[in-house]
Amino acid sequence: MLVTDDPAVHQLRSLLTLAEELHFGRAAARLYLTQPALSQQIRTLERRLGVQLFARTSRRVQLTPLGQALLPLVRNVVGAADELRHAARQPSDDKHGLVLRVGLTDCAAALGATRRVIATLTTLHPGLEVDFQVLDLVEQATALSVGKVDAAFAYLPVPDGFCAEPLTTEPRVVCLSATDPLAGRATLRLADLAGRPMVSLAPGVSSVERRFWAMDPRPDGSRVRYSDHHVSRVESLLSAVSFDGAVAFLPAVAAELFPRPDIRYRTVADLAPCTFGVVWPERDGGDCRGIRALVDVCRRLRDQGGLPPGTMRRPEEEPSPARG
Rank of each mutant, 00 (worst) to 15 (best):
V234Y: 07
A202Q: 03
Q140P: 00
V3D: 13
W213V: 00
T57L: 02
L182W: 03
I118A: 09
P166F: 10
V295A: 14
S320Y: 04
A109L: 11
L111F: 09
D244G: 02
V61E: 06
L16N: 08
P171R: 11
A110T: 00
S207E: 09
Q68L: 12
G221Q: 03
T4C: 13
F162D: 02
Y265P: 04
L201M: 10
Q68T: 02
V149A: 03
T34I: 05
L18I: 01
V199N: 01
R185P: 00
F276E: 03
P159L: 02
G50W: 11
R43L: 12
R233A: 07
A29L: 11
V138M: 04
P91R: 09
E20R: 05
A272H: 09
F258T: 13
L111S: 10
G324P: 14
G290N: 10
V117T: 04
P157W: 08
G127S: 13
R299W: 12
E317H: 10
Y32W: 08
T114Q: 12
D192N: 06
A110G: 03
P197V: 00
V247R: 03
A255D: 10
P219R: 03
Q41V: 02
H230G: 04
P197G: 01
L176I: 08
D82F: 10
H10K: 05
N76H: 14
V199R: 02
G161Q: 04
A109D: 08
R218H: 11
P91S: 06
L156W: 05
Y32V: 11
F54Y: 09
E235L: 11
Q11H: 14
R233W: 05
A214P: 00
L307N: 09
D106L: 09
D82L: 11
I291M: 05
G67Q: 07
P72F: 12
A88K: 12
K95M: 08
L12W: 10
D5E: 04
A194C: 00
R185S: 07
D5G: 00
P315Y: 08
S177E: 05
R26F: 09
E165D: 10
V231I: 14
P273V: 07
G204P: 08
C274S: 13
G306Q: 14
P157M: 06
G50E: 09
T179W: 06
S236Q: 15
T123A: 15
E139D: 11
S232F: 10
E235F: 01
T34P: 00
R172S: 06
V224W: 08
N76F: 11
S39E: 14
V199W: 03
E20F: 01
T187Q: 13
R59C: 03
S58Q: 10
Y265W: 08
P181D: 10
Y226A: 01
L135P: 01
L301S: 04
I118L: 15
H96G: 07
R314T: 15
E316L: 06
P251C: 08
L188I: 03
S207T: 02
T267Q: 11
T168K: 13
R218M: 13
I263W: 01
V253E: 15
R185Q: 11
F212S: 02
R299P: 02
S206L: 00
V134K: 15
G161Y: 10
A293T: 07
E20D: 12
V102H: 06
A88C: 12
